[in-house]
């Protein structure tokens, strides 16, 4: 998960603080009020969103380079098609589709995580609590494979 270790380290600190807070409450009162339990949900969603944002930005940088490269080096017919593709006007999942097959497992994994990212972007929480280190590892693996494209 080399692309995101600083974010997962920060998350570990935040999650640790929330867990300690919950521990202390359980030790003294034997119950955890809803707003404290929500802290865990919020930190997980926030750091997940940040991991995904960095992933998005990295992907868009890769496609920028690829489009530029193809415009200059592709055969005439293809170069025209690449000339028409506007980097900034592409939907995010089409950025991903430029770098990896739409039917492949990497594309599908990104698509799944993108749904959760959108729930947060629309002001809600992800349907289920994100496990930040696992997601960071998964996206880092995908990004490494996307970077491997010549």
């Amino acid at each position: 998960m080399r692309h995101f270790t600083d974010i997962t380290d920060a998350f570990a600190v935040a999650d640790g603080a929330v867990s300690s807070k919950i521990d202390n409450l359980l030790a003294t009162t034997n119950m955890v009020p809803a707003d404290v339990a929500a802290l865990s949900q919020i930190t997980a969603n926030a750091y997940f969103f940040m991991v995904f944002a960095r992933f998005e930005s990295a992907v868009k940088e890769l496609t920028k380079q690829r489009i530029e490269q193809m415009r200059q080096h592709a055969a005439a017919d293809d170069a025209r098609a690449w000339g028409v593709i506007s980097h900034d006007a592409l939907f995010f999942l089409n950025h991903v589709a430029l770098l990896t097959d739409k039917g492949g497992s990497d594309y599908r994994d990104v698509q799944e995580l993108y749904k959760d990212r959108n729930a947060i972007a629309h002001g809600k929480f992800a349907e289920t609590k994100p496990n930040v280190p696992v997601i960071a590892a998964k996206l880092s693996g995908i990004l490494s494979r996307l970077e491997g494209i010549p």
């Binding site: 300690s20 997940f48 959760d116 289920t128 609590k129 994100p130 496990n131 696992v134 997601i135 998964k138």
Partner: peptide, 26 residues
């Protein structure tokens, strides 16, 4: 801890004084 978690097939929390671990089914 929870069955439905983005990224795992469920997780369990191990707690002791000043110590906690999340065990996840990957």
């Amino acid at each position: 801890d929870a069955r439905w978690v983005v990224g795992t097939r469920g997780q369990v929390l191990i707690r002791a004084f000043n110590r906690f671990e999340t065990v996840m089914d990957l």
